[in-house]
Design a protein around this nucleic acid. Structure first.
Lengths: 228, 228
DNA sequence: GCCTACAATTGACATTTATCAATTAAATAG
DNA sequence: CTATTTAATTGATAAATGTCAATTGTAGGC
């Protein structure tokens, strides 16, 4: 008998194929927590005691060193983090904070590891999820190392364009300062970058972005299916 | 009966725990290839038909976009690549070339996927390997986004120092231009960077690097166990 | 609705990094 | 061993990016 409250994550790829028995074990020690916005829920270096799943809201993974900070990715509905640390029983490499009011499922890492050893279907789902995350990170790395900040910005806008149903009026999903950090640039530079993209058919008004010339932007940004 | 020629990879973590039966299936369709130095063996975008294992020699993973190229990592004895593409049955995201004469074991991806589904021990080993690679990539990313090129260089030297048994006389394992690419800088910049590090106790002579003041270098580079 | 916080923008400037060209050093083939 | 190719270095300069300070814009609390 799986408690009602965990039914939502049952539908995510990571749990879709596990047996009821496994799911029962996974949720037995699990709990759900509601976080306010801007709350640091995980700090890098800490032991990975729980696998986290964002049920709703928005969570940013970021890292720090020597007084600097950088945003790595932003997670939404049904995303898991941080699986690799949980599996390997190693400390988190990234910190996590909520950007909005968020509801997060937390499953004890021990239970994840034991079910993972006992349920081949869960093991397969984990491999799938890890591969997906790994490949996403490699793409991110290529983006960073092969492109200038302006090219990254252009491709980010094109990615939003595709994700938001090929519309030409785009809504930025996160604050500009966080976007800047994600793209590996300063907020000032992002601001100037958005201005520079006017020359390639991009208009900006607050959180709204209008692609006035998709062809020009595409020609400039050169999106690539092995990166974007 | 496992052919003698595959006994070497039997000892690697990925294959150590698989049953003889599984190993037999994995090696049945496998073969070993000897590559000359500087041979591109994999090109990004191609289908991932084989899991590769470097038996000996040295292989560089790199990527390209819009006429630019960047080195992602260098693999040595017993390293696998590129597991995630094999598992997900997706195209390679990186290219691979030999840096030296190398001997590489190639296992058909189909066999990897089928054994992975049938042998839980192999699945566990794969999860372990994927987690390891994923975390290594995250560290790499943090290194790139949180540090200047000079700090990356300093920490690279410190990492070699540790890897080579805490000796103060260090041997660069790869060409400087590839190191530059790996560190996300130009060869010219690397050259100047090495000169700048003189101020922090580093002497360079060709492929040899001498740490004259370990404390000064450490103080400058600030190595971090969550990055390095 | 107004005040207050904070985010975003802009300008001036500094620093970092890349590019181009020329030279020197090192590795390799014959 | 020498000739030839390629890598590494150096100097001069350009471009990209970051920093600091000031201003403008915006969202949320009261």
């Amino acid at each position: 008998m799986v408690p009602q409250r965990f039914e939502i994550i049952r539908g995510t790829p990571l749990f879709a194929d596990v047996s009821d028995e496994s799911f029962e074990i996974l949720t037995r020690g699990a709990y759900i927590q509601n976080f306010p916005p801007n709350m640091e829920m995980i700090t890098e270096g800490e032991p990975a005691d729980f696998l986290h799943i964002v049920e709703n809201g928005c969570v940013e993974l970021f890292c720090q060193w020597s007084g600097r900070e950088s945003s790595i990715t932003t997670l939404y509905h049904n995303s898991t983090f941080i699986l690799a640390a949980t599996i390997k029983n190693r400390p988190y490499l990234m910190s996590a904070r909520t950007l909005q009011k968020s509801r997060v499922v937390m499953i004890p890492s021990e239970d994840v590891r034991s079910v993972f050893g006992a349920d081949p279907d869960f093991a397969i789902a984990i491999v799938d999820e890890l591969s997906r995350c790994y490949r996403a990170t490699i793409r991110n790395m290529k983006n960073l190392k092969l492109r200038t900040s302006l090219e990254r910005l252009g491709n980010y806008i094109l990615k939003l364009h595709r994700r938001q149903g090929n519309t030409l009026t785009i809504e930025l999903p996160i604050e500009k300062r966080r976007l800047a950090s994600y793209l590996g640039m300063t907020p000032e530079n992002l601001s100037r970058g958005l201005n520079s993209l006017k020359a390639h058919g991009v208009e900006v008004q607050g959180q709204q972005i209008l692609i006035e010339d998709l062809e020009a932007l595409t020609k400039f940004a050169k999106p690539d299916y092995l990166i974007d």
